[in-house]
């Protein structure tokens, strides 16, 4: 297979999004507000991890340097990670986590729906399977946004705060760059800018129904796709990677 560094980078972006968010959601296991939610969070974390593994493995193959999913997950530094800032944000309280889920799942669903048409068989395949999973993730986030936004005074306050916390990171999800645009022109990738209208419509409707206010916040500078992250990613990766790095060249 000829090396395709651009395609590898693209797969890594999508894979890193899924991996980092899976890691964040895993932090909720045994800490959720109801046992039923421990099960739900674990389900979503598992789905995302599955997507990450397929995408990272594929990125490694296409890159052609012999790197496995674990090589990529455990032995890259944070300047080499390509995920959005949205997914590396701290969990905060349950409302903030749901806010992040609403924002990101809605984006991810739009993205996978479009990616099903990719001329790349592997990416189209991942997208086809992921659409079913992420439809469920978005629905979970929607149901909770409604219940927290339109629940008690306290839950509305927290849900609004959660939306405010994640809103500055929304724009970054819909930014594109020459790498992505070239791949999109070849029918391999999705131009993220095209996903914004669908996202706005869906999320706008949910916020309205949940009696929440669409924030008017400044946009954060972003840079995740280029390996420029928030300070949080370093800590997340430290925890995730330290054991594997302590025992290099080991099998588990």
């Amino acid at each position: 297979m000829t090396e395709q560094p651009a395609l590898a980078s693209y797969a890594l972006r999508l894979g890193d999004d899924a991996l980092i968010l899976s890691q964040r959601l895993s932090e909720w296991i045994s800490r959720a507000p109801q046992l039923e939610e421990d099960v739900a969070m674990a389900n979503i974390a598992l789905d995302l991890l599955g997507q990450a593994r397929t995408l990272l493995t594929y990125a490694g193959e296409v890159e052609g340097m012999g790197r496995s999913e674990d090589d990529l997950a455990y032995f890259r530094d944070d300047r080499q990670y390509r995920n959005l800032h949205m997914v590396e944000l701290e969990n905060g309280d349950f409302a903030q986590t749901i806010a992040r889920q609403l924002a990101f799942s809605s984006y991810q669903l739009e993205m996978y729906l479009a990616l099903r048409r990719s001329r790349d068989e592997t990416l189209a395949g991942v997208a086809g399977k992921a659409v079913k999973e992420v439809t469920y993730h978005r629905d979970h986030a929607t149901q909770w946004t409604l219940r927290l936004g339109d629940g008690t005074e306290e839950s509305r306050r927290r849900m609004q705060a959660g939306i405010e916390r994640v809103w500055p990171y929304v724009d970054e999800m819909f930014r594109s760059d020459p790498l992505e645009q070239a791949l999109a022109a070849d029918g391999l990738a999705v131009d993220a800018r095209e996903l914004r209208p669908g996202w706005d419509e869906y999320v706008g409707a949910v916020l309205r129904q949940a009696t929440l206010t669409r924030p008017q916040t400044r946009t954060a500078p972003g840079g995740g796709r280029q390996g420029l992250h928030t300070e949080q990613l370093g800590y997340l990766l430290g925890e995730m990677q330290y054991l594997a790095r302590s025992h290099p060249y080991s099998r588990w």
Partner: peptide, 9 residues
């Protein structure tokens, strides 16, 4: 929620 949780569980 009951339907969702039932599906998960």
């Amino acid at each position: 929620m009951a339907l969702r949780n039932a599906r998960d569980l």
